[in-house]
């Protein structure tokens, strides 16, 4: 529960690979899932987060701390989010969007979704496959047929070099 003294309360979060993290309650309650636990009084001990691994949780906590340190200024928050996501590879982004979904953090979720959409924009099919680790299980004939069906969507796109 909220501290009556002036000292900030810290929560302990546990990832699904048993890593423990402490984080200030004020930052952690950006997650509606965690906030509900705090409000219900079940945040006393360790909070297990069964759907988030340690690497992702560390990243999410960095974000929580960073964004909650910024006062109510949407522009500054946005630029922090942009910077925070700028060096993340696709796999991390996918993990983060899942974590944000599980933790019910709409601001992170929207930002990561926008980032993924932005990464995909104007990219060739081959590029997206490589980047996202997608195996092409079409036969060449099938692929050609799908391409033909949607050929109007292939204008002005980077051409594939290797597929």
């Amino acid at each position: 529960m909220a501290a009556e003294t002036g000292t900030p309360t810290t929560l302990t979060l546990k990832s699904n690979d048993d890593e423990l993290f402490s984080v200030a309650e004020s930052a952690a309650i950006l997650s509606v899932t965690i906030r509900n636990m705090v409000e219900d009084g079940c945040a006393g001990g360790v909070i297990p987060l069964d759907n988030v691994d340690g690497k992702t949780l560390a990243s999410v906590i960095t974000y929580m701390n960073g964004i909650s340190a910024i006062p109510a200024d949407e522009e500054k928050k946005k630029s922090y989010r942009d910077k925070f996501l700028s060096d993340k590879d696709f796999e991390t982004l996918a993990d983060m969007v899942l974590a944000a979904n599980y933790l019910n953090m709409s601001c992170l979720m929207d930002a990561v979704s926008a980032k993924i959409a932005q990464v995909m924009e104007k990219k060739s099919v081959g590029w997206v496959r490589r980047k996202f680790g997608i195996e092409n299980d079409y036969t060449p004939e099938e692929e050609a047929a799908v391409k033909e069906e949607h050929k109007w969507t292939f204008e002005g796109v980077e051409t594939d070099d290797d597929n």
Binding site: F90, E91, A94, D95, V97, L98, N101, M109, D110, S113, A114, I116, A117, M120, E121, K122, V125, V128, R129, F132, G133, I134, E135, N136, D137, Y138, E143, V146, K147, E149, H150, W152, T153, F154, E155, V157
Partner: peptide
């Protein structure tokens, strides 16, 4: 291939940010 495994709600969010062309084009991926 994490993105295809994402829950539908999340995918919806991502796809709603793409243009129609971008969204349809992904059908060629796999």
């Amino acid at each position: 291939d994490k993105i295809s495994e994402l829950p539908e709600g999340i995918l919806q969010g991502i796809f709603s940010l793409l243009s129609q062309e971008e969204a349809v084009r992904t059908s060629v991926l796999s």
